[in-house]
Every structure is written in C-alpha cells, then in structure tokens.
Design a protein around this nucleic acid. Structure first.
Length: 497
RNA sequence: GCGCCCUUAGCUCAGUCGGUAGAGCACCGGCCUUUUAAGCCGUGGGUCCUGGGUUCGAGUCCCAGAGGGCGCACCA
C-alpha cells in the first residue's frame, strides 16, 4: 500500500507518539533497540495459577510478563493497564512507592496504548478482585506509532479487518481465538492421522495437467523451461500415484487453487485434507470419517457431541445418518431413478424446478440434488452411492454399475467431505477420461484434460483403496461457528486498492 | 458477471425537508494512591470514498467510477 495521505488529526496522533518515542530514546531506553525480554509467565497461566488468591492477597514469587497494552487507566500516584499476550489478559498495577515516582511518571507520560511492554513484579489481587502484576520494573519493548482502533468497539469495518488482519487480531481477541483454534484443529487432525499410521507428504502445486476435480485452474508460466503451468485444483491424482508406489496410508494437508467466484463459502485458495488408505473400502472410510469428526467436535467442545452453528444445534452422534443418493431424491421430490439417470429426464426435472438450462446431465443432477435434498441435511448425514456420471474417479458398485461406492458428508447443508472407493481399473479410468476429453473439446472449460500418466500408474496397479477429501476451511467454519470463509482465512483475497 | 446495500474525525457512529459538520471514545493540557470502556475540568481535530451534474446553495438529489458487504450465477 502506498503511504496514505494523513488527515491533520491523524498526523497529530502520530506526532504525539513519535514525541514519546524520542523521549524514551533520550532517556536511554530506545524501544527499537531492545533485542530480548525474559518472559517467565503468560497471562492465562497466571490467572489459572492464582485463581484462588483472595482479594487483597499477595503472592511472593516474581514474574515477568510481556505483551501489548490495550487499556490504560491512569491516576495520580497509581496506574492500571491491561496487558494482553497471546494467552489472554493480565492487569498491571503501578504504585509510585513500588515502581518509583519517576518511573511511574515516565510511564504515564511516554507510554501509549498499543505499546509492547515487559513488566516484572509480584502477583496481587486488588481490593476489587482483579488479579494484577504489581509492577516493580518495566521496559518498553516496542513503540506503537499508529493510533489503535476504538477500545470498546474494536475494529468493525470488514474491509480493514481483512486487509489489515494484524489490527483485527490486535484489538479483537475473539478473532485471535478463532485462528488459534484453527491451528489447534489442524494440529489435532495431524496427530489423529499420524497415530493411525498415515504418512504426510507434499505433492506439487505447479503442475502441467491440473486434474482430480472439475474447476478452472490458475495459469502461470515457468520462464526457464518456457512452460505453461497450472496451480493444482486437487491433490488426488498425485496421492494415488503414491499408493501405487506402495505408501499404503498417505495424506496431504495443502493449499488448493480454483479460479472461481468468491463468496461466503468460497475463496480462490483454500486448504484441503486428502487422504488415501489402501485395502479400505468406502465403508471403512465412513467409519473413519465419523471417528475423526466426533473427535474434533469433542476437542473444541470439551467432550460434547453437539455444536452450535448459525443458531442451530448439530448432533454428532455415531452412527451418522445415512441416505442413498437416489433414495433421498425419491423421498424428498418423488423423482424416479430412470428419469434422474437419463439426460432428458434430468433436464425435464431441472426445468420444472426453475433451474435455468443445465449444460450437462451431471450439472442438472447436481442442481436437482442441491435444490431438493440439501436444504434438509443439517445434522451430519452421509449421502451414499452417488451415480457414476457425477463421479469420474470413483469405483462402480459391483451390484449396480450406474452407481459408485462414494459418499458425501453433509453438515449444516454444506458439503463437508467427499469420499469413495477409488477406481483402480485402468481401462474404466481411460474410458472416463476419454469422455471428459470429449466434454472439454465441446467447450466445457472446467473439465480437466486427461492425465494419461495417471492411467499408466493404474496399469502398474493400485491396490483397492478408499480416499477422502475434507475442506479444512469449512470444517473450521463449522467448529468455530463462523458464517463466512473469510473469517477463518487469515488473509482472504481482496482487490488491491 | 448481475442485483441490492454501505463508504462522514484516528475508531465507533448520528446527520430531519437541500441551507456553512455532530456525539462518544481516542489524542493534547490539568486534577486524582484500588481502576475495570475509570472519573472530573478544559483545548484542538473533517478531501463527508473519487469525478462529473442539477441548484442561489449538495454530506443529503442525479450520473459515472473505486473499494467493501450480502444475495444470485459459477464452485468446494
């Protein structure tokens, strides 16, 4: 961002802080020269440890804390300040006869809200019951030169919250909580997978053929090779190559890029967990999915099996509800299999539902399901046995080859994951790629070009395998009760100013 | 890409029928030894998103543009 032109008033606010910076420097305490501070406790730790300290009580141990000053309450010969570190808040209590008259005066004159401060002293609880560090010594660790947003309302403007997330995180503790929880959720997923023998790998982001999903890729160029490249739209085809290579349980948590629209559930770059387990069918994968989701719900709720999302209570009780894809459409809309599985029939139903001219059979079927069934899928529900025409990489059911061994898990009317028994018949895979190539040739830009090397890998032989993809951002939305994907992505895409 | 809405002080927001711009907090000066958005007294602070237009006169009405939010379309 270019240096913005400042209003007169804002320039004055900054000048006042720069004057305080100069005063600190001339007193030999240049905050920008500080290289370290011995932190011996975090706020939350002290709050826990001294939870039983009575009002008016004092502890003997001395602690050093460091963090940002978010609230200053000065008085003549005494002062209070709220200091926030990553863990939470602790009040600092300055008394002139403890910290020294001159040091208190210097604090009141030259330290600003927003400055980073290190403070050492004993823990006390004030008469009014607030646990506090009675400051014996303090040090300004960094000067904040810009005025902070409103101490009460915080930063509300959505645009600034996304563009200047550092400010959002600084003044809105609830936002910081969401992102810390996101980090814990992902760490817990890794622990869960590692404990079950899954191997984490990294597959390429820059690839020639962006397959494994239907989406427009971002395009880029490699100069030295003079090569057009795409950013990946899925990790699927590379992870399955690794199963071919003998890595029986493999996963990747990685960024995926899709050149599509932006809304409350879509960001052009997003995070996905994909994992593959050799010798599992989609049945084992469904069990595994339940276990993982229940585990994560328990983690964020402290052992409960319900979460609140958007004002609704969602129940994560095993076994999750199950419904077969075609049964759901019959029960909810009275539609017959023969109609749904024929291009003309599906188009007729789509039009009767007011869906504008679907470009393909698959598109029509997808839209019908979205309109008829999805609104009813609040509690976690597996939608099983999805037609092969929607599932180019899934294995057919042996007893019903028009359907696949595939399920999607819906939670809060959102697709939370997509899993199937992986197609490992190279001839079937080649045939489906050929069909896709035909679609692509007739103008469908979202269908990827065939990845023939993947077919070669299947010819080497992939064991029977089940795989799953879980959108991490949406999972975090569910677990943190956020209605917009931008509120679980630290730096969501914004137009440059 | 389409539709609706938003943009006023550092922050959060008012601004009536078109008549020279308001509050709270923050900041600055003063008082205060137990505050919790501390309190009290006082001072200062504006490219009303940008550019046009209508009008004697525009924060306000009209047009165009920028950025953002929500919905639709696309998608996960």
């Amino acid at each position: 961002m270019d240096t913005p032109e400042l209003g007169v008033r804002e320039a004055e606010l900054i000048a006042a802080r720069r004057a305080n910076l100069a005063a600190l420097r001339s007193a030999g305490a240049d905050p920008y020269a500080v290289t370290r501070y011995e932190v011996t406790a975090h706020a939350a730790e002290l709050q826990r440890r001294f939870a039983d300290l009575p009002a008016g009580g004092e502890a003997d141990d001395r602690f050093s804390v460091a963090g940002r000053l978010m609230l200053l309450r000065g008085q003549g010969n005494v002062a209070f300040a709220d200091l926030w570190d990553e863990s939470g808040k602790i009040q600092l209590f300055f008394k002139s006869d403890v910290v020294g008259k001159e040091r208190l005066k210097a604090f009141q004159k030259h330290v600003d809200r927003g400055d980073l401060l290190g403070a050492r002293g004993r823990i006390v609880r004030t008469k009014l019951g607030e646990l506090s560090l009675l400051v014996e010594h303090y040090e300004v660790l960094c000067k904040s030169l810009l005025p902070l947003p409103d101490k009460w309302h915080g930063l509300v403007d959505m645009e600034r919250r996304y563009r200047q997330r550092y400010l959002d995180l600084t003044v809105n503790p609830a936002v910081r909580e969401i992102f810390l929880l996101r980090s814990r959720i992902i760490a817990e997923m890794r622990r869960f997978l590692d404990a079950r023998g899954f191997v984490e790998v990294e597959t390429p982001v820059l690839i020639n053929i962006a397959g494994g999903a239907t989406a427009r890729p971002f395009q880029t160029h490699h100069n030295a090779l003079d090569l057009q490249l795409n950013l990946r739209i899925a990790t699927e085809l590379y992870l399955k190559r690794l199963v071919v290579g003998g890595i029986e349980r493999v996963y990747e948590i990685g960024r995926i890029f899709r050149n599509e629209g932006i809304d409350t559930k879509h960001n052009p770059e997003f995070s996905m967990l994909e994992l593959y387990a050799a010798y599992w069918s989609y049945e084992e994968m469904a069990q595994f999915t339940e276990e993982l989701f229940v585990h994560l719900v328990g983690m964020v709720t402290g052992g409960k099996d319900r979460i609140d999302y958007g004002g609704r209570s969602l129940h994560f009780a095993r076994p999750f509800k199950r419904v077969r894809y075609l049964d759901a459409l019959r029960e909810r809309g009275g539609y017959a299999r023969a109609d749904l599985l024929s291009p003309a029939g599906a188009e007729r139903i789509a039009i009767s539902l007011g869906i504008p001219k679907p470009p393909s059979h698959a598109h029509a079927l997808d839209k019908i399901f979205e309109a008829v069934v999805e609104p009813h899928l609040a509690d976690p529900t597996f939608v099983m046995d999805i037609p092969v025409l929607l599932s180019p990489l899934a294995k057919r059911r042996a007893d019903d080859p028009e359907l696949t061994e595939r399920y999607e898990l819906f939670i809060a009317n959102m697709e939370a994951c997509n899993a199937f028994s992986e197609l490992n018949d190279p001839d079937d895979q080649r045939g489906r790629f050929e069909e896709q190539a035909h679609d692509r040739a007739s103008g469908d830009a979202e269908t990827p070009p065939p990845d023939w090397d993947f077919v070669t890998a299947l010819e080497v032989g992939m064991p029977p395998t089940a795989g799953i993809g879980i959108g991490i951002d949406r999972l975090v939305m569910l677990l943190t009760d956020q209605q917009s994907i931008r509120d679980v992505i630290l730096f969501p895409l914004q137009r440059p100013l």
